[in-house]
Design a protein around this nucleic acid. Structure first.
Lengths: 226, 226
DNA sequence: GTCTATAGGAGGATAGAC
DNA sequence: GTCTATCCTCCTATAGAC
C-alpha cells in the first residue's frame, strides 16, 4: 500500500476510474460476486493497479463507501446544525428531522448521472450483508449522525418511548433502503412499474411520517424506557 | 440430476442436511460467498453429494427458497381465503390484510429453533440481490400471493390511489425485511440492542398501519390512477 | 507509475471405483 | 447412493521488467 487513501491527489484519475467501475460492479454483483478482473476490465486499467492504489480488494470496497458516505453524512450534519440553530433551543418537527436525515440520501439516489443512484443501491444491499469487516467501518462512518438524529427524534416526539423511536428509525431505514435499491424488485413483484420517479420523495415522506407518528401498540407501554 | 426436486422421499436425510446447512451459509455469506466445500463440510456430507442431489449450486439455492416460500405463501393464501370468506363480500380491514401477509413471515422469523429465522434473514438479503436467476424464480413463487393481497388492499383502502398502495406495499416490505434481517444492523448503528424480540410484531404492525393509512402527499393527487 | 507474467490456491463440477 | 481423485477455470496478490 504505497499511499494512504486520502492523498490520491497525486494519482490523476485511474484511482477514480477504479472507484467508479467497482461501485457499479459491487452494486450489481455484490462483493464476492465482483472480481478484480471485472473491475480492472471495466475501468480499462491494469489488473495490478487496484492493489497498487488501494492495497487490496477489501480496502477498495471500503474506499468506495467512504467516498460517498463522508459526503452524505456531512450534508446530514450540516442540515441538523442549521435546523437546530434556527429553532433556537426548541425541538424540531418530526418532518424536519426526517427530511434532514433521508433528504440527502434521496437526493443522492435521484442522481443517475454521477453514480449516486448506483451507490445508494449498493448501500441498500450492503446493510443486509453481515460480513464482519463491513459492519466495522459502517459503524464508525455512521456513529455521529445516528447519535445526533436519534436525539433530535427523542425531542421531537416526547410522547413516544425512546426504545420505540429507535425501532421506528430502523423500520424507516428499511423502507427507504428498499424504496431506493428495490425498485426493480417492485417491478418484479407487481409485474410493471411505470410511475414518475420524482414522486418517490413525497410518497416516501408521507409514509414515513405516518409510521413514525402512529399510535403505540398497547404492549409497547410496558417496554423498557431508557 | 437423477431425481426431481419434489420426490426427495427416497433420500433419507442427506438432502435435508444439505438444505439446512446451505440455508444458514447463504444467509450468512450470500450466494457467491458460500462455496460447495463450505456447504458439504457443514452438512458433514461428501463434496459430490450436492451435485448428485440437486444438480448444481444454483439449483440448490433455488430449492432452499422453494422449501420455505411454498409453505409461507400457502399460509398467506389460506389466511386471505379464510378472511374473505368470513367477510362475506365486504372489504377486509387494512389491519387484517397486513396481518395475513406479514403475520406468517413474522412467525417464521420468530422460529429460531427450526431455521425459520435463518431463512427470513436470507430472504431479506436476497431481495436486494439483482442476480437474474434469482429474480426469475422469486417472481413465479410470489405471483399469486401478491396479486391477491394487492387486490385486498385496493378494496380495503378505496380512498388511496392504487399506485400509492403499490408503493406503500413496497415500503412495508422493506421495513419488515429490515426489521427481520437487520436486527444486527440496528444493534450496530445504535450501539446496543437489549429489547424483547417478542415486541417486534406489535411494534411493526403499528408502524406499518400508520404508514399505510398516512395522509396523501399533495403531489400524489396528480399521480396516475390505474 | 504502469504493465506482463505468474505464483499459489480455491472455485464448481464430474468420472469412476465401491 | 456415496466417496475419492481430479479436471480445469478463476481467483487475489505480487514480483520484476519497463
Amino acid at each position: 500500500m504505497p499511499q494512504a487513501a486520502d492523498d490520491n491527489r497525486s494519482a490523476p484519475d485511474t484511482a477514480e476510474r477504479i472507484l467508479d467501475a467497482s461501485e457499479w460492479l459491487f452494486a450489481e454483483h455484490g462483493f464476492d460476486g465482483t472480481s478484480m478482473r471485472m473491475i480492472t476490465t471495466r475501468a480499462a486499467v491494469n489488473l495490478a493497479s487496484v492493489n497498487y492504489h488501494f492495497g487490496s480488494k477489501e480496502a477498495l470496497f471500503q474506499e468506495v463507501f467512504h467516498r460517498r458516505l463522508a459526503e452524505l453524512n456531512r450534508q446530514r450534519l450540516e442540515a441538523i446544525n442549521r435546523m437546530e440553530a434556527d429553532a433556537g433551543g426548541t425541538a424540531l418537527k418530526p418532518s424536519q428531522v426526517l427530511d434532514g436525515f433521508f433528504g440527502p440520501a434521496l437526493e443522492m439516489a435521484a442522481d443517475t448521472e454521477h453514480g449516486g443512484y448506483t451507490f445508494m443501491r449498493l448501500l441498500g444491499r450492503t446493510y443486509t450483508e453481515p460480513a464482519e469487516f463491513i459492519r466495522k467501518f459502517m459503524a464508525v462512518e455512521y456513529a455521529e449522525v445516528v447519535e445526533r438524529y436519534t436525539a433530535a427524534l427523542y425531542a421531537a416526539l416526547p410522547e413516544v418511548p425512546k426504545a420505540e423511536i429507535v425501532w421506528r428509525l430502523h423500520f424507516m431505514m428499511g423502507a427507504v433502503s428498499y424504496a431506493i435499491s428495490g425498485i426493480d424488485a417492485l417491478a418484479l413483484l407487481t409485474g410493471h412499474f411505470d410511475d414518475d420517479p420524482a414522486l418517490l420523495k413525497p410518497r416516501l415522506t408521507a409514509f414515513l411520517l405516518g409510521g413514525l407518528r402512529a399510535p403505540l401498540p398497547e404492549s409497547a407501554n410496558t417496554a423498557t424506557r431508557k
